[in-house]
Structures are given as C-alpha cells and as structure tokens.
Design a protein around this nucleic acid. Structure first.
Length: 480
RNA sequence: GGCGACGUGGCCAAGGGGUAAGGCAAGGCUCUGCAAAAGCCUGAUCACCAGUUCAAAUCUGGUCGUCGCCUCCA
C-alpha cells in the first residue's frame, strides 16, 4: 500500500512519490506574528504536524520548513499590521514580532506540535528576495513603478492554475492608491515603496521599502528546499492570492516547477462562523487549553479530515473530550496493570489484534492522512483492549507492553494524542506512594464495610483531582 | 458576480456504484456496597428533484441551503 495524497494542484488523489527517494522537502506557510495564536492556527499546524509525523513514521526523511512572517503585510487601511499593533502598544515593531513569535512557539509546544526543522524569518531574507525580484525584472515578469516593483500577471500564462481563477473574472477591487501604479489591477507587489511613516523599511535597489506579500515564501522555499520540492502546505484561505502568487513568482524566476504536491487545510469556524475579533468569537490557543487538555484539542482537530472545515463548538469539543477519554482510560489501565503484572507473556495471543490495528491504522493514514478513519480504528481496537484487560484472565508484562507499544506507534508517535505518562520525578513518585497509602487505608475501610470512611477518602481525593475506580482486582487511580 | 468546499441518525463524523465505519448523547442490561470505568443490546437509506445503470448515499444535470475565498488572514 502506498501513500496517496489529494493534490490541490490538479484536484485529484495521487500516489505520493518524492522527488528524491526517501526524502521529503516540505514548506508550510507559517503565521504572521502580530497577535496571539488562535485555534485556527492550531488546526492547520496540528494537521501538518501529524502529516510530518506520519511521513517520518513510514521511514521518510522529512525536511520541514515553516516561515515566520515578521515584516508585516498591508492592512486594507493601508497600514502595516505589525506597525498597527506596535502603535497600539507603544512598542517597537520588532518587540511585537519577538513577543508573538515566542508566544506562537509556546502555544505549539503546549499542543505537542513538533517544531519545524527550519523556521526562517522573512526579515532575515531580504537579500534573497532582492535576488529573486531582480531575476523577475530581468526576465520581464516584473516592472518598477514609482519605487515599487510589481509582478506582471499577464506575463505568466499559468497564473491561476492552483485556484482555478482566471484574471478577467476577478473583481478589480484593489485599493485606489495602488491602482494607478499597476499595469493591471491583478498585478501584485514584489516590493513596496515605504511611506515616510512606515517604520519597518529596508534599502533596496528601488529605494527604501519593504517586501511584497508573497515573495518571502518563494525566496525562502528556494533557499532551503530548492527550486522544486515535494510538498507545499498551508491553509486553504491562502490559496488566492498568496499561494497562486508564490507559484507564479517562483516558476517564472526559477524556470522550474515549484511544489509538486499542494496540501491545503480546511478552515476552522466557531459556532458556524469564522473567527474574528469584532465578532468576539476569537479563541486563542491558550484559552482553549484552559478548557481542554492538549491531547483533546488534537483529538478534536483530527476527528475531521484535514481538508474539511471544522466547527469549534462546546458540543463538539465535549464529545471529543469524552471520546478521547475512552482511549486514554484504556491506555492508563494498561499502564497501571503493567506495574503489577507477572513478567511472562500470558495472553500473548492478543498480539494478532495488535497487528490488525496497525494495518487498519496504516491503511487509513496512507489514504490521504485519513485521521478520522484512523481514530475509528483506534476506537474499535480500544473496545477489544478493554474487553481483554477486563476479562479476568492473567495478562503478562510482555503482552501489556506490546499493547502499549502499539498505542505508542499509532496514537502516540503519529497522532500525538496519548495521555502523558505519570511522571517519574521524585515528587511524582512520592505523590503516587501517598495516594497508594490512602487507597490501602480505604481498602481496609471497605473490608470492614465502613462505607462512610471509604466514600470520604474517595471524595476527598476526587476533590483534589485524583479519581479512584474499584475493580475486581483492586483499586486504580488516575488524575482527572 | 466569479472561484471553491459542503449538506450522512439528537450532536460530531468516515465512506463515496453493490446495498450505511467510529465517537458523543439517550434508553435497556451486565458487573458493582455505592460511584466510576468497562462490556452487551437498541436507532439513519445519506437536503430535494430528475436522469444514467442490473444496481446510487456514492455518477450526471438542476433546485434549495450552509460555509469559505475573491482585500490581510492558518
């Protein structure tokens, strides 16, 4: 079975064949760091995190580049969004950038998103952009106008091939101020002349200015991944004009195909509508983490295929939380049983079921990273695991470890949704020992049928977040 | 107006020509001092209409509806 990917370029599912066998070069459009990251970012970057993890799990060597945009883009008011924020907070632009770049990485770390191999910043690649712009000028794909440089869309017959947009059909609704400088309204800026009040500015062959809206990705992708690379990712909302323009610039400048596979992620809405500050439905990742643990958020994001839009709502999140809980409980039970299990391989016949789960999981992921299907496989598997663990038959350490290894290889390493293991630190061990002492006391009370005392211990532990569950073979605990 | 996605049981959501995965919720049951956890059982003909076909939720055309993009956006 080979991996198949829905290539937005061409809109069909294709066998994935890397340019260089065994290696995958991937570029994903990163965030503009001018504010806290929200759950829409979480959806996109969790998706590419899982994609990267899966590619690596299949043995591919992935080089994952994701930019940090820190040069600002124009707002429709004509203001630069980073400058706008800087004015609001009386801070220097680069202070804003630094603050939110850190916040972005913090948020991603908390979500268990593995960091890209390279996180290049636009502001550090101005020379690379110059070079590409100059090439485009030499080849007459671009022209200078009043201190700015524009890409001449009419010079690229392929413009529109990703988004299926043909020029004539678009509204010519560009801002008045800029329209006069362009030959065609559809032309986009490679370099923009800086007005006097513009703080973020660089010297350039065309005067002081700042980079256009799309050139950074083209320049950085070229630098780190080469003219042609395997996968370009991002949010579907950037398909036009951003991704389309990236392709145009790069393919005209490099005389080579740009990205071979385009993977674009569906957007996230909140209660059915797009997040926006003015609507007050803007949910940051930190807000979400106050309500739900990271694995639940990941589970939720992956319960819908990456290419589909997902709607964030209390009902959906609570459903995801309960569903995740079921998987997590089975894993935690297996871990607990492992601590007191006999060393042997009793119950090893269950291994056959481990094999089918791995096969089902792989088949699902090979089919365009079908995480909802993969999770369904895990849920069915978990039903069988629960039946097995609760069957009362002796289960040896080797068998329990095999079950846990299987969870780790699928839900853990690839999906990143396993509950964190109980820490091995000294204080955690002390805590566990104390809890065990209380459990032992309660066992005495239960033997004496002292239900009041038994319930008191359980309730008081519950109040501090330790949940006790009585099983036929003893009492287990978990942090709730 | 143009481009694109989508409409599957109360909710979330896979599938996508051969007769509807999975999760949540609900009800019943088993286990159980109670609780929790876990397991078992119960439910949809796939927005609507018209075609193609031996066969359609899956293909084609149309209708209605929802969402996103077309200006920065993950």
């Amino acid at each position: 079975m080979t991996l198949r990917i829905f290539n937005v370029l061409g809109r069909e599912k294709q066998d994935f064949v890397p340019l260089n066998e065994g290696h995958v070069n991937m570029y994903v459009c990163g965030p503009t760091v001018y504010d806290n990251s929200h759950i829409g970012h979480a959806k996109t970057y969790v998706a590419f995190d899982v994609i990267t993890r899966y590619l690596r799990a299949t043995g591919l060597d992935v080089l994952y580049v994701q930019n940090i945009t820190d040069v600002g883009h124009l707002l429709d008011s004509g203001e630069d969004r980073i400058l706008k924020k800087a004015a609001q907070t009386q801070a220097k632009p680069m202070q804003i950038v630094e603050t939110y770049a850190k916040a972005y990485f913090d948020a991603m770390d908390k979500l268990g998103v593995q960091r890209p191999d390279i996180s290049p910043r636009a502001s550090g690649h101005i020379p690379e952009m110059f070079k590409m712009i100059e090439t485009l000028l030499e080849k007459e794909n671009a022209y200078v106008s009043n201190g700015s440089v524009y890409f001449d869309v009419s010079s690229d017959p392929n413009y529109g091939k990703l988004s299926n947009r043909r020029l004539q059909e678009q509204e010519a609704g560009t801002r008045e101020a800029v329209r006069g400088e362009k030959r065609n309204p559809e032309d986009f800026a490679l370099w923009k002349r800086a007005e006097p009040e513009h703080i973020l500015r660089w010297d350039s062959p065309w005067g002081e200015g700042f980079p256009g809206w799309h050139i950074e990705c083209s320049a950085m992708a070229l630098k780190y991944l080469g003219a042609t690379f395997d996968i370009h990712g991002g949010g579907i909302d950037n398909i036009f004009p951003h991704n389309e323009s990236e392709i145009a610039q790069s393919e005209c400048a490099n005389d080579a195909e740009f990205a071979r596979y385009w993977i674009l992620v569906g957007s996230l809405t909140v209660d059915g509508i797009k997040m926006s500050k003015s609507l007050g439905n803007f949910i940051t990742i930190d807000d979400a983490l106050k309500q739900f643990p990271a694995p639940v958020i990941r589970y939720f994001m992956q319960s819908v295929h990456y290419s589909n839009p997902v709607d964030y709502s209390d009902d959906a999140m609570n459903g995801a939380a309960r569903g995740w809980e079921r998987l997590a409980n089975a894993v935690r039970l297996a871990r607990q049983m492992g601590r007191s299990a006999p060393e042997g391989s009793e119950g090893i016949a269950f291994e056959e079921r481990l094999g089918t789960l791995r096969a089902d999981f792989t088949a699902a992921m090979d089919d365009d990273f079908n995480t909802p299907q993969a999770i369904a496989s895990l849920q069915e598997f978990t039903r069988d695991v629960n039946t097995f663990l609760n069957s009362g038959t002796a289960i040896g350490r080797i068998t329990l470890d095999a079950i846990l290894d299987t969870y780790e290889a699928t839900a853990g390493k690839v999906l990143g949704i396993l509950p964190s293991p109980e820490a091995d630190s000294g204080s955690a061990q002390r805590e566990a020992a104390l809890i065990q002492m209380l459990i032992d006391l309660r066992v005495q009370a239960r033997k004496a049928k002292n239900w009041a005392e038994s319930d008191r211990i359980r309730n008081e532990l519950a109040a501090i977040g330790v949940i006790l569950e009585d099983r036929a073979d003893g009492t287990v605990w978990k942090v709730g």
